[in-house]
Design a protein around this nucleic acid. Structure first.
Length: 734
DNA sequence: TTCCTTGTCGCCCGG
DNA sequence: CGACAAGGAA
C-alpha cells in the first residue's frame, strides 16, 4: 500500500486516497494528473475497496486510454483487458454492441467518420434536390452534430426561420436514412447510448449497480451530452450513486468551439454534491520562468476557478522572442536554433515546433527539408483514413452490413468492373422507388426474376463477389479474412498494376498486420469489432514513431505532451489569437487558454516567434505581433536579434517595442538614433508596425508617392484601414 | 471511363 | 497557395 503512495505530494496523495465520494481534482499542467488518476485506480483495487469490474474510467483520446491501461499494468498485477477503460465513444460503442436490440440497431451497425458523414450528406442532398449553395453541406453537418451533442433529436428542435427549419427537416431525413442503412455517426454513438440508458430503467440500474467508481479525465472538455450521460450512468437521482472522480483544468479548456462546456465543472460540483476540491498546483515539468509566464498570461482571463502553478526547481532560462521579417525567415531562424540545440545534445524528438493552424506547417517543413533535419508532422492523414484502406474496409463492412450504402457506393466500381454512371443511376433510382438499400435492390435484380436480362453484368458480378466473400470468410481468423478480401476484391492487383501503387500496396499489407495485433490485444477479435476499432481509432501511423525526429504539430495536438524545447511560431494578431476568435463569444479567452497550453509544454526552453509578413491563402498578410507576447512580463523575455541585421542601421529594431532587456543590452544603438529623415524611405516599409495618436497600432500594408507626398496605407487593429500622408500623420515606428 | 483543365474555398480538434 | 470537386474532351 505504501509503495503506491511513495513519491506523491500531499495533495496528490489526498486525491488518491479519497474516501467514497465524488470529487473534483483541479489539476494544472504538468502536475502529475495521469499519475494521480492511475494510482487512484490501483489504490482502490489494491485496498479492496473496488474490484476491477466496478470501475469505469473515461478519457477523450485513445492515446490517453492506452496510457492509463499501460500504467495500471505496471502498478498492479491484474489483467486490464476486460476493464471498462476507454474513450466516451469507445465505451458507448461497447454498450451499444452489448444491447443492440434495445438500442434498435442492427447487430453489425457501422460507425462512419466525418468524411463518410460528409459524403453521405451530400448524396442525400442530391437525392432531395437541395441546393448546396443555399445550404452548404459543411454547415448542415455542423448543425446535425451540434444538435446531437446537445442531446437533441430532429423532432425536438425549434425552428425560428426557414433556414433552420429546412436544416431540421434535413436532420430528420438524415436520421431515417442512417437507421435504414445501419450506420451511426460519432455523435450518434453518445446520443444513442444516452437514450438507451434513459429508456431502459432495468439496464440503467444494472450499470449503476455495477460501476461504483467512475473516473473522468480532461473533464473540462466534456460537452453537455457527455455530462448528461455521466449523470445517468452514475445514478444521479437514484437512491445511491457512484463516486465520480473528475479530473480537469479549466485553464486548459480549448474545445469550446466544438461543444465542450467547461461550465460542467461548476455543475458537477452542485449535481454531485462535491465536498472536496483538490488543487494540484505543483508543476514537475517546467522551469520557473516558463511557469511565471504562463501564470501571468492566463491571469488575464476572467471567471477562472483559480490556480497558480509553481515549481520546486529554479527559474531556468528566459523565454526567447524572435521577430522575423517574413515567415520564410522565421523558418530559417528556427532551423538554425534547432541545429544549435542538437549540437548541445538535445534530441530532435525532444524538440517541438508548434503552430496555431496546420496551414503554417508547410513553410516550416520546406526549410526543415532543405536543412535535412528529420521531422514528423502530427495530425496529417491517419492510417485508417487512407484511400486504399477505406476501400478495403468498405468491402469488409459490406460483408457484415450489406445495407451500408456508403460502403457499397465506394467500391461497387472500384476496382472498375464496368459499372458506369448509367447503371449506377439506374440502381439508385430503383432503390429509391422500392425504398430499399442499394444492396437489396441489386439482390432483387439479380435474383431468379423476370428482369434479369436488363441487369448489368457488372452488378451481378459484384453481388456474386460479395456473397462469395461472405461465404469464404465465415470461419477464417481475422487476419486471413483481410488477406482474402484485399486479394479477391482486386484491390491488390489494381495497386500492383498502378505506377505509384507500391506504397498503397504496403498499406494494404499493413492492414493485415494491424489485424494481427488487434487479435492479440483485444478480447473480442471478430470482424465487427475490428471495424469499430478502425472507425474509432484514427490510427496514428506507427512508422517512425521511435525515430529521432523533430515534432511538428498544432497547439491543440500538443495538449498533454511535453518537450525539452518548444518553438511557438506565428505569434501574430489574426493568427494567434485567430481572426475568427474575435467574433466568437469568449473567443479571445479560449485563444489565451490555447496559448497557456502551448507555453506549458516546454520543460526547459521556450521560443516565441512572429513574422511581419506571412503568406496565407495565396496572399501576403501583414500582422502585428500577438497581444499574448505583451501579456508576458518583460523581465521573463529575452529578445533575439536577427544575425544579419546591423546594429548601427537606423532600420534597426529587433522588437516592435523596446523592452528593458533590449534597452540595457543595446542602448547606444536604439536610444541615441532617432529615425532620421534620410532613412525614412527605408524605414517606412510594408509590414512595419506603427502607432498613431488617435488610431492606435497598425501595420503598413502599402505606400506610394515620394518626398512630402509620401503616403502609406495602414491597417489599424481597431480603426480599420486608412491612407495617411506621412508629413501630417505623425506616425511612430514601433 | 479516364484524364486533364478549371473553379472554388479555406481555422483549430477528437472520437 | 494547394486540395479537391466538377465538367469537358479523348
Amino acid at each position: 500500500m505504501t509503495s503506491l503512495l511513495t513519491g506523491l505530494n500531499p495533495e496528490q496523495a489526498e486525491a488518491v486516497t479519497l474516501p467514497y465520494q465524488s470529487a473534483l481534482i483541479l489539476a494544472g499542467a504538468g502536475s502529475g494528473k495521469t499519475r494521480v488518476l492511475t494510482t487512484r485506480i490501483a489504490y482502490l483495487i489494491q485496498s479492496g475497496q473496488a474490484s476491477p469490474n466496478s470501475l469505469l474510467a473515461v478519457t477523450f483520446t485513445n492515446k490517453a486510454a492506452r496510457e492509463m491501461v499501460a500504467r495500471l499494468g505496471t502498478l498492479l498485477p491484474i489483467n486490464t483487458r476486460g476493464m471498462w477503460i476507454g474513450t466516451f465513444h469507445g465505451l458507448c460503442n461497447r454498450m451499444l454492441r452489448a444491447h443492440y436490440q434495445e438500442a434498435r440497431l442492427p447487430q453489425a451497425f457501422q460507425i462512419i467518420d466525418i468524411g463518410d458523414q460528409q459524403s453521405f450528406i451530400k448524396r442525400l442532398m442530391k437525392a432531395l434536390a437541395i441546393d448546396e449553395k443555399a445550404y452548404p453541406p459543411r454547415q448542415i453537418q455542423w448543425f446535425i452534430n451540434n444538435a446531437k451533442e446537445e442531446g437533441l433529436r430532429a423532432s425536438q428542435l425549434e425552428a425560428h426561420d426557414t433556414f433552420s427549419r429546412k436544416m431540421g427537416e434535413f436532420y430528420h431525413v438524415y436520421e431515417e436514412r442512417c437507421m435504414q442503412e445501419g450506420i451511426v455517426d460519432f455523435a450518434e454513438l453518445l446520443l444513442r447510448c444516452y437514450e438507451l440508458l434513459l429508456q431502459h430503467e432495468a439496464l440503467r440500474r444494472h450499470y449503476c449497480d455495477r460501476f461504483r467508481y467512475i473516473l473522468i479525465d480532461e473533464f473540462q472538455d466534456t460537452n453537455r451530452l457527455q455530462y448528461k450521460w455521466l449523470k445517468l450512468l452514475a445514478g444521479i437521482g437514484l437512491s445511491q450513486h457512484a463516486a465520480v472522480f473528475a479530473v480537469g483544468d479549466d485553464d486548459q479548456s480549448i474545445y469550446a468551439f466544438r461543444g465542450a462546456h467547461a461550465g460542467n465543472m461548476k455543475e458537477f460540483e452542485r449535481d454531485f454534491a462535491v465536498q472536496k476540491i483538490i488543487k494540484l498546483e505543483q508543476n514537475y515539468r517546467s522551469h520557473g520562468n516558463i511557469l511565471d509566464a504562463a501564470n501571468a498570461l492566463i491571469d488575464n482571463n476572467q471567471g477562472r476557478l483559480g490556480k497558480n502553478l509553481w515549481t520546486a526547481e529554479g527559474s531556468g532560462e528566459l523565454i526567447r522572442v524572435y521577430n522575423a521579417a517574413t515567415d520564410f525567415e522565421e523558418a530559417a531562424f528556427i532551423v538554425e536554433e534547432v541545429k544549435a540545440l542538437q549540437a548541445e545534445g538535445v534530441s530532435l524528438s525532444e524538440i517541438a515546433l508548434l503552430y496555431r493552424s496546420n496551414a503554417q506547417s508547410r513553410v516550416l517543413e520546406h526549410s526543415l527539408f532543405n536543412a535535412s533535419l528529420s521531422y514528423r508532422v502530427y495530425g496529417g492523414m491517419r492510417f485508417f483514413e487512407r484511400l486504399e484502406i477505406k476501400h478495403a474496409l468498405a468491402y469488409l463492412r459490406l460483408m457484415v452490413q450489406p445495407e451500408d450504402d456508403i460502403s457499397l457506393l465506394r467500391i461497387i466500381n472500384f476496382p472498375t468492373r464496368g459499372i458506369g454512371s448509367r447503371s449506377l443511376e439506374q440502381l439508385q433510382d430503383d432503390a429509391k422507388q422500392l425504398g430499399m438499400s442499394l444492396w437489396v435492390t441489386a439482390l432483387q435484380k439479380c435474383g431468379p426474376g423476370l428482369e434479369q436480362a436488363k441487369v448489368q453484368k457488372g452488378v451481378t458480378g459484384f453481388v456474386a463477389l460479395i456473397k462469395s466473400m461472405q461465404q469464404a470468410c465465415r470461419d477464417l481468423p481475422l487476419p486471413e479474412i483481410i488477406r482474402y478480401v484485399i486479394a479477391q476484391s482486386g484491390l491488390v492487383a489494381h495497386y500492383a498494376a498502378e505506377r505509384e501503387g507500391a506504397e498503397r500496396l504496403d498499406n494494404l499489407n499493413e492492414l493485415i498486420n494491424a489485424a494481427v495485433s488487434f487479435v492479440h490485444e483485444s478480447e473480442d477479435d471478430s470482424l465487427i469489432s475490428f471495424l469499430s476499432h478502425a472507425s474509432l481509432e484514427g490510427g496514428e501511423l506507427q512508422a517512425d514513431q521511435h525515430q529521432k525526429a523533430l515534432q511538428l504539430m498544432t497547439v491543440h495536438a500538443a495538449k498533454g505532451l511535453e518537450f525539452h524545447s518548444v518553438f511557438l511560431s506565428g505569434l501574430e494578431e489574426g493568427l494567434f489569437p485567430h481572426e475568427n476568435s474575435r467574433s466568437e463569444a469568449n473567443g479571445l479567452e479560449e485563444e489565451r487558454r490555447l496559448m497557456y497550453v502551448a507555453t506549458t509544454r516546454a520543460r526547459r526552453r521556450l521560443y516565441l516567434s512572429f513574422s511581419q509578413s506571412r503568406m496565407l491563402h495565396g496572399q501576403t498578410h501583414y500582422n502585428v505581433p500577438s497581444r499574448f507576447i505583451q501579456e508576458i512580463p518583460d523581465h521573463l523575455l529575452k529578445w533575439l536579434q536577427p544575425k544579419h541585421q546591423s546594429v548601427s542601421n537606423a532600420d534597426f529594431s529587433s522588437g516592435w517595442r523596446p523592452t528593458a532587456s533590449q534597452l540595457s543590452g543595446v542602448s547606444n544603438a536604439f536610444s541615441s538614433n532617432p529615425v532620421s529623415n534620410a532613412s525614412k524611405q527605408i524605414t517606412w516599409k510594408i509590414g512595419r508596425t506603427v502607432s498613431h495618436g488617435t488610431f492606435g497600432t497598425g501595420v503598413i500594408t502599402n505606400c506610394e508617392g515620394q518626398g512630402k507626398d509620401l503616403r502609406v496605407q495602414v491597417r489599424f487593429n481597431r480603426a480599420g484601414t486608412k491612407w495617411l500622408l506621412l508629413e501630417y500623420a505623425n506616425l511612430t515606428l514601433l
